[in-house]
Design a protein around this nucleic acid. Structure first.
Lengths: 231, 231
DNA sequence: CAGTGGTCTAGACCACTCG
DNA sequence: GAGTGGTCTAGACCACTGA
């Protein structure tokens, strides 16, 4: 009985009517009042079910216009953004982190414009390797805005990765993530123990706390890396 | 005034207390009853706000144990999975689709095991190119389970892409998506008008309708492609 | 067993927008 | 103007689980 709760039952039933094309794409489905009457429950319960489906992109809801089955649904997939160490350990491997370079400096022009910082901004530049069972897993290049996180200067980044420290200490930031693919250059190939030109999965992340930029990081994943999500 | 509704105001205020470390990671925050009293609203309203934050990974909620600020939050990012044509057109380009190969056949061993199909399953194998302003944008190789979508045999796939037909006609399936990077082989490079060995962004998607597999597709994105999401 | 969150109800008011 | 969904309320019962 995975459908103990009325709102889940309703969601499931509406989903069934959509997938079995009882309500084909474009259909105007009954109003919340009508569905509440049909299912013998309060309107709030129907609302809960339909709201979830609308958030998932399967329904289009508009006041007065009613609720329609999406014609070309924009499905929403959820991705978990975790601490790297947890990802490694969840796969049953031993995590280690190795700092390659640590330098206090001002940003490059690219970083400066991306983070909307002043020319002479005080920043920490890090290059580091994340290892799983002593094999390189991710190589990252990171810029940290010291105005946002001055305490990180006192952190022993050989012990705790910047990734983990930031997540634990400034975890509640907004940001955006970009995925792409890139050929490894000689230096990157050496660090990741692969060959030059190897296709690498690249994650770039910029995080903000309100208006204040915190960090910009480019993470190169070792060959074979796959990022999985559920639709 | 983006905070017209009480539940949004509450969510925002709780977020503030977390980000300003008034409630540091690990803190047991007040119960819904207490917060309802504090904000002068119904408990359901507090529940709505806290539930959203918990779904975003910022709070851990357990009956009896109460609500805690996550120590190492697993942030949830949302990705929009759209019809390819829309993505192209949203960028202001003209979309065209070109079928490279269409063959009715039985699955390879790999596809067979991935989709949990029988050895002799009746399938449609397609290779196609998606173009933006006449430049190759995505090359896809697709397997379609004809038991799930027999009507597609009658569709003119030169006119409508399989992607779009499936989304419009069997849109309400579950599935999973995998992202990775791969070096282009000679054939892929030729189709995407790039060079052999070029790093390509790869999306693999398998969709199901209940227990019944519908389609498995591997999409190679032209160089320079970036997939963006917001945290 | 007591207190938490998860859910539900019956009603209400409001914002929006179609006709 | 009327009907829709979006939200809120005050109350209730229940499932879970820590003490």
């Amino acid at each position: 009985m995975p459908e103990a709760h009325p709102w889940q039952t309703i969601r499931h039933e509406v989903l069934r009517r959509i997938s079995e094309r009882i309500w084909p794409p474009g259909t105007l489905i009954p109003s919340e009042h009508e569905l509440a009457r049909e299912f013998g429950c309060a309107r709030a319960t129907v609302n809960r079910a339909l709201r979830e489906l609308a958030e998932g992109g399967l329904l289009d809801r508009r006041r007065r216009a009613g609720t329609r089955v999406s014609v070309a649904p924009v499905r929403k997939a959820k991705l978990d953004v975790n601490v790297i160490r947890f990802d490694v350990e969840r796969r049953g491997a031993t995590y280690r982190h190795s700092l390659v370079e640590r330098r206090r400096t001002s940003p490059t022009e690219l970083i400066r414009s991306r983070l909307k910082l002043d020319r002479g901004a005080d920043m920490l530049y890090l290059r580091a390797l994340h290892l799983a069972d002593e094999r390189p897993s991710i190589y990252e290049e990171r810029w940290i805005n010291l105005a946002a996180a001055p305490e990180i200067l006192d952190v022993d980044l050989d012990t705790v990765s910047a990734n983990e420290w930031l997540v634990r200490n400034l975890p509640f930031s907004s940001g955006d993530i970009t995925f792409s693919a890139a050929n490894a250059n000689a230096r990157e190939a050496a660090l990741l123990e692969t060959i030059e030109g190897q296709a690498l999965f690249v994650v770039e992340r910029i995080t903000w706390q309100g208006e204040c930029p915190i960090t910009s990081v480019r993470m190169l994943h070792a060959p074979g890396f796959r990022m999985r999500m559920t639709l």
